[in-house]
């Protein structure tokens, strides 16, 4: 395998700069921190638990709001914990869903233990086999530049795994860790305050 050169914080900031009115879900751990570092946003639902659920939350959201693009940004470890959800999302064929995995091949949160991705497991091949409309592995800046528009434009479900370096990044958190706050904020921003349950 070639060596990764992309920086996760720079990658996430670049992917989010064209989000417009897209709905974003970030996975437990570093991808939540990456998105927070790129700028807090009420239409980002940042997971701080429930590892393995990011793609399914994105799928439920994509089905509820076919008028909006839904972007899931999660880590390779979080994705590995929910591999079945790739098949569930793939066969559901939501045209408005994009899944991006920030892949350092490691469990950065727990002490840099190597993940299966660091041993050669290729999530893009799995996504392709799971009926995703497209799936790519991103190693370089030009590839990332091409992906930046694709995740918001081409018919989904779109999958990309972006190989990033393992350099440590500081923790960045949402304004509150309280789940009721984060879900209320998200729903108020999307549906308007006081939307019926």
């Amino acid at each position: 395998m070639p060596a990764a050169t992309l920086n996760r914080r720079a990658v996430t900031a670049q992917l989010l700069r064209k989000r417009d009115n897209a709905l974003v879900v970030t996975g437990l751990g570093s991808t939540t921190y990456d998105a927070c570092a790129a700028g807090d946003h009420p239409l980002t639902f940042p997971l701080l638990g429930a590892m393995g659920s990011a793609v399914m939350i994105g799928l439920g959201l994509a089905k509820a709001r076919p008028d909006r693009r839904v972007l899931v940004i999660t880590g390779d470890g979080e994705m590995l914990m929910g591999l079945g959800s790739l098949a569930t999302a793939g066969v559901s064929r939501p045209q408005n869903l994009a899944v991006v995995v920030i892949d350092n091949g490691l469990y950065a949160e727990t002490g840099m233990q190597r993940a299966h991705t660091g041993h050669g497991v290729d999530l893009a091949t799995i996504a392709k086999g799971a009926c995703f409309a497209s799936a790519a592995v991103i190693w370089t800046q030009p590839e990332l530049d091409a992906l930046e528009d694709r995740i918001y434009s081409v018919a989904g479900p779109v999958f990309a795994t972006i190989k990033v370096t393992a350099e440590p990044t500081p923790i960045a958190l949402p304004p509150s860790l309280d789940g009721t706050y984060l879900r209320t904020r998200f729903r108020d921003a999307l549906l308007g305050p006081g939307a019926p349950d």
Partner: peptide, 16 residues
């Protein structure tokens, strides 16, 4: 367990 995430996404999007 996938269903819990699905229900959360539905709710965030305004559906029961």
């Amino acid at each position: 367990e996938e269903g819990i995430g699905l229900m959360v996404g539905a709710y965030l999007g305004g559906q029961r």
